[in-house]
């Protein structure tokens, strides 16, 4: 199998205002490659939610997007506090975001549910005090 095309981003955890830069760059890159617009929309929204989560909860992290012939993998890794209860975090409306974050229109408890909604597969590995890695797969076929 051929090697995937990999895009790597460092997500700045201090900068909520410019959060989303990596996702918007991915959207541009995938458009240039000529992928289906709905696939691009799903990848960029899933990644944006992850990016926002990393900024809100984990002071940033790293994102890798791997483009294979049959799928796109998004791997988001942070060294944040970890997720205490994944089942709870997956419920629409559950959020631990601050009032400041909510006043900006985030913290609606839709981040992880949206990531699941827009990906075909999603795995979360998290450890309290160590960090969280989320792997999402969006199939191309």
């Amino acid at each position: 199998m051929s090697e995937p095309l990999v895009f790597h981003f460092d997500i700045d955890g201090e900068d909520f205002i410019s959060a989303g830069q990596a996702s918007i760059q991915i959207k541009k890159n995938l458009r240039r490659i000529g992928l289906d617009p709905e696939i691009i929309r799903r990848v960029s929204i899933a990644m944006y939610e992850g990016e926002i989560n990393m900024v809100i909860h984990a002071k940033g992290g790293e994102a890798d997007v791997k483009l294979y012939e049959d799928r796109i993998e998004i791997i988001l890794a942070d060294k944040g506090p970890g997720i205490k209860n994944i089942d709870e975090a997956m419920q629409e409306g559950f959020s631990t975001a601050s009032d400041t974050i909510r006043s900006l229109g985030f913290g609606a408890g839709m981040g992880l549910p949206n990531m699941k909604r827009y990906s075909d597969e999603m795995e979360i590995n998290t450890e309290i005090g160590v960090g969280t890695t989320v792997r999402m797969v969006i199939k191309l076929a």
Binding site: E38, E49, I52, A108, G109, M110, N114
Partner: peptide
């Protein structure tokens, strides 16, 4: 006005009506 909600539900080519006006919009 809840941005994640909008991203999860708004469809491509919709007009999005909101009162939010920060940079994340």
């Amino acid at each position: 006005d809840l941005l994640s909600w909008v991203m999860g539900r708004a469809r491509q080519d919709n007009a999005w009506i909101t009162i939010m006006s920060n940079i994340n919009v």
